[in-house]
Structure formats: structure tokens, C-alpha cells
């Protein structure tokens, strides 16, 4: 079959795609920040010796690990408003879905980093007379952070890619904008090839930045 490629109509509407890319970056950045906060709270609950704190956190985490991400998007957009009698716009619903699901995964990253620190480090600090809080702040967390970096980056990349699901709620992310451009140009091959390359450039750039950050945080090893 002969197909004559023509990126012309797509590139004419590149401003639409650029806006989509910007929205994708925006929703990812906001969701990473909120996800980290959710993850920190969940990780502290999971690490607590009090079962009434650790068990609910475990249930929350397992719920997210064992359900498809798109269900979370639909739940926050279609179901939550029924429960609360307020409607959420697509952006808010997508941010809630992304930050809670990434929070559940970040929590395991944070907890894993903390529990990976050898018992001897705790004992070394305790023997000096350090309180639990001081030990955490001065000894455990600084070492745990460098171990958390690789899985944290991995998880953030997952989140970045999952933002494409926000298009199902009609949030104007890169994928949604591509669908709009396609509707106007009837050039799916060119449109979706273009945005695939845009996602690729975005993720490769992000991974380069992440590698720099990683090198800095693990300098002592």
C-alpha cells in the first residue's frame, strides 16, 4: 500500500500539541509533588509500630497496587462527585488519581529505603545517646534517600506516562490534544507518530536530569 506522509497539517497545529505537552508536564509535576506528600504520610504510617496506623496504610497501598490506574481516574471523576455532591473538573480528578496512586507506590519506595539501612547504623547512633528523631534525621534518612533515588525516578517515569489516561476525562494533555488535531486533520499516522516522539524527547530529557540528581545524592558511595 502506498501511503504519502504529510506532516504539514499536523505541524500547522503544533501550537495545540505544544499546549498539550505543557499540560502533561504540569499535571505530572503537580502530581509528583502531591504524591510525595501522600507517600511520606503513608510510609510513616506503615513504619509505625501502632497497628491502627500501619494497617490502614497497608490496605490503601495494596488497593492501588492491585487495581488498574484508569479505574482510579474514573472513580475520582465520576464516582467521588456523587458521594460528595460536588463536581470535580477533569484536572482536579486526574491530579487526585495520579497523586494517590503514585503516593501508594512512593510510600513503598520510602519505606523500603528506610528498612534497608542496616541495624548497625541504628545501634551506632543509639549508643551515642541519640534520640529516635535525631537518629532518623542525621543518620537513617540521609542514607536512605540515596537508596530511594533509583526506584523513585523509576516510579516518577511511570507517573509521567500514566498522565495520558487523563485524556479519557477530557483533560487537555498531549494525548487529548493529539486527538483534537486528528479530528481536524484526519492524519492519525502523522499525529500519533509526532506525539510519540514528543513523549520520547520529554522522558529522555527527564532521565538525563534524573541521572545528574542521582549522581549528586549518592556521591559518598
Amino acid at each position: 500500500m502506498e501511503y504519502s506522509w504529510d506532516f504539514g497539517p499536523v505541524l500547522e497545529r503544533f501550537d495545540m500539541l505544544a499546549l498539550g505537552l505543557l499540560n502533561t508536564v504540569k499535571i505530572a509535576a503537580v502530581s509528583i509533588v502531591l504524591g510525595v506528600l501522600v507517600g511520606l504520610v503513608l510510609a510513616m504510617m506503615r513504619l509505625s509500630p501502632r497497628r491502627w496506623l500501619s494497617v490502614p496504610a497497608l490496605v490503601f497501598i495494596e488497593f492501588y497496587r492491585n487495581t488498574p490506574p484508569i479505574v482510579h481516574f474514573f472513580w475520582f471523576f465520576y464516582a467521588l462527585p456523587v458521594m460528595l455532591a460536588v463536581s470535580l473538573d477533569p484536572y482536579a480528578a486526574a491530579v487526585l488519581a495520579l497523586s494517590t496512586q503514585s503516593g501508594a507506590f512512593y510510600a513503598e519506595v520510602f519505606r523500603g529505603g528506610i528498612v534497608s539501612i542496616e541495624r548497625g547504623q541504628w545501634e551506632g547512633g543509639r549508643a551515642l545517646g541519640m534520640t529516635h528523631a535525631a537518629l532518623m534525621r542525621r543518620v537513617i534518612v540521609p542514607q536512605a534517600i540515596s537508596r530511594m533515588v533509583p526506584p523513585f525516578i523509576e516510579r516518577s517515569f511511570e507517573l509521567l506516562k500514566t498522565t495520558a489516561l487523563a485524556s479519557t476525562l477530557a483533560y487537555a494533555d498531549l494525548l487529548y490534544q493529539a486527538m483534537m488535531v486528528n479530528a481536524e486533520t484526519f492524519r492519525p499516522l502523522e499525529v500519533y507518530t509526532t506525539i510519540a516522539l514528543m513523549y520520547l524527547v520529554l522522558l529522555v530529557t527527564a532521565s538525563q536530569l534524573a541521572r545528574l540528581a542521582e549522581a549528586r545524592l549518592t556521591a559518598y558511595q
Partner: peptide, 8 residues
Amino acid sequence: FQQFNLFP
């Protein structure tokens, strides 16, 4: 300690 337990 036997294993020193210095802060790396």
C-alpha cells in the same frame, strides 16, 4: 561494636 557501625 564488632562491625564499627560508623556513619558512611
